[in-house]
Each structure stands twice: as C-alpha cells, then as structure tokens.
Nucleic acid binder design. Structure first.
Lengths: 179, 179, 179, 179
DNA sequence: GATGAATGAGAGTTCATTCAT
DNA sequence: GATGAATGAACTCTCATTCAT
C-alpha cells in the first residue's frame, strides 16, 4: 500500500510530528479522501504501520526459534537479540518513531495481540532456562526495555552493525538474568 | 519559577500532548504574555525543564561520587544506578515525558552541555575500572540506554521500588561491561 | 426503488444529518455509481422522497373527499385533519426530516406541483364553506401550518394516537376559520 | 458581540447550512481563532444565539403579563400571541433558522432553562383559565406548535403584519382550548 | 448499465506566538 | 514588565460527486 510506505518514509525522515494525514496522502500521490478510504483515522494508519513492523519481528523470531530450538539461555538470548537488533537497525528511525507512537496512542487491538505474542515467545525462552528470582513478567519487561533502549540509542547514534549491537545486548540481558 | 513547575505538573499528569503554552501559563497563574517573557518559545520552556531535571541528576551523581569514590566497577555501577533509578522513579511520568520531548526537539545547547557532563562522569567511572573492548563512548551510551530504558519501562508499569529496580539495572550493566 | 426506501429509513432512524449518498447506496445494496444513475444529485433524491410522501397524502385526501363530499366545514376539516394526522404519525420521524429538508433546499418543480395540488384541494373545501375575511391563500397556508406544526410536535413528543391529535387539530383549525 | 450579530445575519440571509464558523468569523471581521475564544464550539455559538432570542421573548412575555394580569383566556392568549408574533416576524428568517437549529442540536442547558420558563409562563395562563380535558402539558405543546408553525409559515411567506397574524393565531389557539 | 476507487473543497477546531494597551 | 485578545497556518476528517473500467 502506497500510503503506508509514504507514511513510513515520513516517519523515518522527519519524525512522528511531521506525519500528518495530508503529508502522507500527498507523498503517496493520493488524495486525502483516498487515504481515509483505506484507513478510518490517523491512529489506524499508524497502528497498522506498527502492527506490520511487529508482525515482521514476530515472524522472524518464530522462524529463528523453530529452525533450531535454543540449547541454552545464552544461545536463546543471543539469537533473539540478533533478530531484534537486525529488525530495529534496518529502518532505525522508523522503528524509533513507531515506538514513540505506540507509547502515545491507546493500543490498537490487533497490534496489542501481536505484541503479546512476541512477549509470550520471549517469556517462554526465559521460563525454560532461567528460573529467575523475579517473576517472569518483570524479567520479560526488563528484557524488552534493554533491547528497545539499546537498539533505539544505537540507531539514533547511527550505528549500523547489528552483530556488534546484538553482542552487547546479549551481554546485558544475560547479566540481568544471570547467575 | 511557577511556570516551570506548572509545566512539569501538566507533563506529569496529562502527558506531552496536553502541555500547551496557554495551559502552562494558566496553571502557573501567569499571563501567556509573561510566559513568553521568561521563555522565548515553547521549546525553550521544555528544554529548560529537561535541563533542570538533568542538572538534578548530575548533582546527585556528583554528590555520590564525591562522598566516597567507587572502590570497584560493581560498586560504582551499583551506586550510580541507584541514583538514576531514584531520580527517574521520583516523578516517573514527568521523566518519561521529558525523555520523549528530548527525542523530538533539536537539542538545546545548555541541555546538551549538562547531558555531556553526566556522560563524562559515567565515562570516568567506566574508564577507571573497565578497560572494555568497546570504546568508552559506546559503553557510556549503552549504559544510559539501559538505565533509561529500564527505568522508563518500570515507571510505565507502575513500579515504585527504586532499590529493586536499581539492582536489576546494575546486573544488566555489569553484564554488559563485565568479563 | 430500493434507494428511496433506504434513504427513508436512514432519515427515519438517524435524521437528516445522517443521510449521505454513500449511506443510502450501501443500505440499498447498490453502488454509489448506480444511485447517481437514478438520481442526478442528493437534492433530487430527497425531493423525490418528499414528493412521494406528499403524493401519498394527496391521494388519501382525494380518496376521502371523493368517497363522500363534506357536508359542512366542520365535517370537512375533521376528515382532512384525520387523514393528515394519520399520514404524519405513520412515519413521524421521516415526515419531520422531510419537512426540514424541504425548508432547506430550493423547491423541486415536481414536488412544488404536488404541494400546490394539495393546497388547491384544501382551498376548495374552505372556499365552499367558509367565506373567511382573510383571503383563501392565507387561510390555506394557516391551516397547513397548524396541521404540520401540531403533528410534528406530536410526533416529536412520541404521540401515536392519530384520532386524538386529529381532534385537537380540528378544534384549532375550526377556531381559526370559525365565526 | 460582533460574532453573534454576524452569525445572526448569515442565518437570516443564507440559512443554517451557510453558517460556518469561518463565515461567521470573516463576516464579523475577526479571525477564526478569536471566534473560538468567545465560543468553545459552533454549537455553543448557535445555542447562545438561540438563547438570546428566547430570552428576549421571555422578557417580553413577562413584561406583558406583569403590566396587566390577563382578565380572561381570550385576553391572555391574544396578548401572548401578539408578543410572539412580533418577536418572530421582527427577524423572521433568523427565527426560523434558529428553530431549525434547536431541533437539530442537543439542547444547551441554559437555553433549555429559558425555554422551560417560557413554557411555564404559558402553562400558567392556561391553567388559570382553561380547565381543559387534555393535560396542561399537551395543551402547552399544542399552543407552542400552533404559534411556531403559523409564525414560521407567515415569515416564510413574507408576511410582516404582526397584528393580523396574532389575530389568526389567537383564533386558532382559542379554538383549540375553547368550549 | 453497473461499479466503487478516487477526488478535493471545505468543515470544525487547536495552539504557538504577537503586540497594543 | 505584565496582560490577554487576537491571529492564522495547519490539523483531522467528511461527503457529494465523477469516471475509468
């Protein structure tokens, strides 16, 4: 969908504040009326963008875990971190803008579900290998916070090496969960 | 300054979107004209708010380090993390709103300087104890990302125990830097 | 015509503001393109709706008068009032919405003609029995105003007894005309 | 207030549909921002217009009744009808547009109150002289419907003689209530 | 004929900022 | 200095209408 790609590019190049419905429509070479035929509101447009982003992440994570079940906590975390870092750095500015948008607007139901599935997937790995003192929900939340925080910062700083980033994220997460 | 406190309270209770110059002036019991005599623009007002927040953090960090120089990396990180967690959880919603605002507006020079001083202070501790493989700037950025990411998430989730949070942050940071 | 009935139902249940061409087409199970093949504009659609409504009223009035010519002013007014009250209360919300629409859009020629025939029919009864001081056109206009005003108000208030309403309308009209 | 008078004139000359906030502001020689400083919404603007109109009517009715209490039903109705006819014919198109607006938007509280006081005033006169079979509320509603219906129609037809109109309204109302 | 994606003028509303008093 | 009425560009969203298929 041209509108989605246009919106993504605006988010990417000029940030959340620059994303207006008119700008998205114009950039997509489409009238504002058409935009509203595809998306009932600006929120819906942004939510769909976020949902696709997260759906891509979820698919990548599932693919990784199904290809080869993690043999240890370190193995699992390392591989999940690599996927997440890759996803975030691919279109770093876009990913950050979407993170911000998610924090601002009440979660779309579909997006919510996708996010919960990602959370469950991570929680599963944690539960399997790391009988942490802290409840799994807290640990999962912390893991997400670390991944998101570090990848956002890396993206903002212009880093573009997912492998190096993933390695650092892995160390931090293992430290958090660690022995 | 009444205007700053008013703006802070709006940010805290109703978020970045609700902070309008008129709302801040009214809440401060001051005319909008006066607000613009103190601050040349809304950006400047928000930047000043962020600067004070960071100045407070900087002062607290300096006080901690000067009271007793860190004996080890673990000792240093643990104490810095506690300060940072405390600062962020004290007025969690405000801190998050400011983080978000900072991400959106081009950095104010004064604020930039304050942030750099905090960075330098942390970098000093790292340099002293952790001859990391990664350059110190990257390590510092990562440490900040972890602290900010985890405390924001904790704040959003309603956590209010700085000690527990600080302990988890410490584990993650030491993991990142660690052997 | 499915479109007309769909438009009528929207008018009835959700009022003039909710009647959009797209809504009418969708409700009729017809494409918006087809709607515009039947009716050149929204105005034309609404006018046709109003015309049918009035045509129904006209037919009922004619049937009543032809079945048994009025024996007196009171008899004539009473019977006409009953017909009018019945027509208006049958689909009260629809009738009111149409009244409102008529007031807003420049009169359609066909609708105008139908309305004039109703006027002539009433004027005939008046002329026959009531040599009023006022010119017949004024009297006719007043009679319509009373009937429409009272039935609209009754409909809005949720009345649904045409007989009682007709009795009151009759008293008012006879008072207007009477000695 | 310039905005109110501008809005009134638009209503008067071009009807409810032509009244847009931009049009009202422009005609008042005021920016759209200023309009919204006086009135928080278009609804509020229209409601205030209606409220003033009705407040004027209420004041006139009270003045009339207090100057000389009605001696009979006929006397009371005649005098109230004259006031109402005068008020409606003074700015007939405006009055009609406001009637229509009132029917479309949920009643403003203040306006509601004014209308209730007018209703109570009329109901008092009815109660005093006309122990009707019908409940007073129905009678009051009918009286209003007759007055409004006849005056609207008269205004639309270009009548401008309040005395003649009032005489006809009086006959109709007395017929309704009559012996 | 029928379809429905596309159009775009225009609606109501917000808010950072200015400037005469 | 302080005030706050005034500004207007910009925003989200609607809907009657068109026209290529």
């Amino acid at each position: 969908m041209a509108v989605l790609e246009a919106a993504a590019r605006i988010l990417e190049t000029r940030g959340l504040e620059a994303l207006t419905t008119n700008a998205a429509a114009e950039r997509a070479g489409v009238s504002i009326g058409s935009l509203y035929q595809y998306f009932p509101s600006k929120q819906a447009l942004v939510a769909e963008l976020a949902r696709r982003q997260q759906a891509g992440l979820l698919a990548a994570l599932e693919r990784e875990l199904q290809s080869r079940p993690p043999r240890s906590l370190a193995d699992g975390v390392r591989r999940l971190a690599r996927i997440a870092a890759q996803a975030q750095l691919e279109r770093a500015a876009l990913a950050r803008a979407l993170d911000q948008a998610e924090a601002n607007q009440p979660a779309d139901a579909e997006l919510e579900r996708t996010n919960r599935r990602i959370g469950a997937l991570v929680a599963d790995v944690l539960r399997q290998f790391a009988p942490t003192a802290a409840p799994v929900e807290v640990a999962t939340r912390d893991v997400f916070a670390i991944v998101r925080g570090m990848t956002d910062a890396a993206g903002r700083a212009g880093e573009d090496d997912p492998a190096g980033l993933a390695a650092r994220v892995t160390r931090a997460v293992l430290g958090l969960l660690g022995p």
